[in-house]
Computed example of a mutant assay.
Amino acid sequence: MRSPTWIRQHLAALRALLVFTALLGLVYPLAVFAVAQLPGLKDKADGSLVKANGKLVGSASIGQSFADKDGNPLRQYFQTRPSNAGDGYDPTASGASNLGPEDVVDTLPDPKLVAAGKEDENARESLLTQVCERSRAVGELEGVDGSRPFCTPGGVGAVLAVFGPRAKDGTVPHPTRVVSLNEQEGAVKTPFVATYRGVKVEPARYGEDYARGLVVPVRGNAPAEPAVPADAVTASGSGLDPHISPEYARLQVRRVARARGVTPAQVEALVREDRTGRSLGFMGEPVVNVLRLNLALDAKYPARD
C-alpha cells in the first residue's frame, strides 16, 4: 500500500535535511580544517600569531597600538595607521567610520561642558578635521611639515559658510557674512583667514544654524603632495590594518633611530627587509608590517632606557 503524498514529502525533506547536515555540518568543516593544517596555511589559519621570547605579542594580520597608557606614541616604535575599530584597534569591533569626502563640517561641542571639563557626546569631528588633526600631530612627532590642503594651521578643516545673494552658478560673489565653521568662538583668537572677498571672517558660535550659508572649503598654501602620507592620517576599512606604506615607514626612520641610539641607515635596512611587494606581483601596493618590524628592532637594536 502506497503512503500518502504528504508523508512521502516529509520523508524526502527529512532525508535531505540529514544529508545536508552531514555534508555541510560535518564533512565540509572537517575538510576545511584539514586543508588549513597544510604547511604554508596553518599559520594563517591559526591567526598569524606572533611570539617574542615565548610570549604572545600580537598577530601579524591585526594592527595594534604602540602608545603609552595616555595614548602618546612610543618614540622608539614605528606607528601604524589610525583606527576607528571601537575605541581603536579593537578586534571585536572591526569597522570604519563610514564618513565620506564631503564630510567637512564639525558638530561643535557645548562650551559650557568643555569649561566644566566634561565631554559633549553630541559633538563630532568631520572626516576632514580628523585628517587635518592627525596630519598636524604626525608632523609634530616626525619633525616635518604636517600641513595639508583644506586644513587650518590649527589642525581643523578650513571650511567657510558664506552668506549673501546667490548667483546663477550657485556662488556668492558679494558676501554679506562669512563664518569659519570648524573654528569655535572662544577656542581660537582669530580665524585661519581674516577676510573673504572683503568681508571679515567670524569664528563659529555654538548653537547657531549656518545651514543657509554656502559651504566653501579653502585650499590654502599647503603643498599639493603633503610630507605626511595618506595612510598616516586615514583609517583602513577594517580599522585593523597591520601594514603601513613604505613612505610612512621612511618618514618614521629618523625618530626611531634617534630613540634607539642607532643610525637611520641601520633602521632603514630593517624596513627594507620587512617590506612586502604586491600580491602575485600586481595586486595592491608594497607594504611594511609594523608589528614584525618593531619586533625586529627590539631584537637587533633594543631601545635605550
Rank of each mutant, 00 (worst) to 15 (best):
A211V: 11
A211I: 02
R212S: 15
R212V: 00
R212G: 15
R212T: 13
G213N: 10
L214C: 04
V215Y: 06
V215G: 08
V216K: 12
P217F: 12
V218H: 10
G220K: 09
G220N: 10
N221S: 15
P223E: 12
A224Q: 14
A224M: 06
V228C: 09
P229S: 12
A230M: 06
A230Q: 13
D231G: 10
D231W: 03
A232Y: 11
T234Q: 12
T234I: 04
T234E: 06
T234K: 10
T234F: 05
A235E: 09
A235R: 01
S236N: 01
S236W: 00
G237F: 03
G237H: 04
G237E: 02
S238P: 02
G239W: 03
G239D: 06
G239I: 07
G239T: 11
G239S: 08
G239N: 08
G239H: 07
L240S: 01
L240I: 03
L240Q: 02
L240V: 05
D241T: 11
H243E: 03
S245Y: 09
S245H: 07
P246K: 12
E247C: 00
Y248E: 06
A249K: 10
A249Y: 08
R250L: 08
L251N: 09
L251P: 01
Q252I: 13
Q252W: 08
V253E: 07
V253W: 08
V253S: 10
R255D: 03
R255Y: 06
R255H: 08
V256W: 05
A257T: 07
A257V: 06
A259P: 00
A259I: 02
R260P: 01
R260I: 10
G261A: 07
G261E: 09
G261T: 12
T263S: 15
T263C: 00
T263Y: 00
P264K: 10
P264C: 08
A265W: 00
Q266T: 05
V267M: 03
E268A: 14
E268H: 03
E268R: 12
A269L: 03
A269P: 00
L270W: 03
L270E: 05
V271N: 04
V271I: 09
R272S: 15
D274M: 13
D274S: 14
R275S: 06
R275A: 07
R275I: 02
T276L: 03
G277F: 02
G277M: 01
G277A: 14
R278K: 15
R278W: 00
R278A: 14
R278T: 15
F282V: 15
F282K: 08
F282N: 07
M283F: 15
M283E: 13
G284F: 07
G284N: 10
E285A: 13
P286T: 11
V287H: 12
V288N: 05
V288A: 05
N289F: 04
N289E: 04
N289A: 09
V290I: 05
L291N: 06
R292A: 06
R292V: 08
L293C: 11
L293A: 09
L297W: 09
L297C: 08
L297K: 03
D298F: 01
D298V: 13
D298N: 13
A299S: 14
K300A: 14
K300P: 01
Y301A: 09
P302S: 11
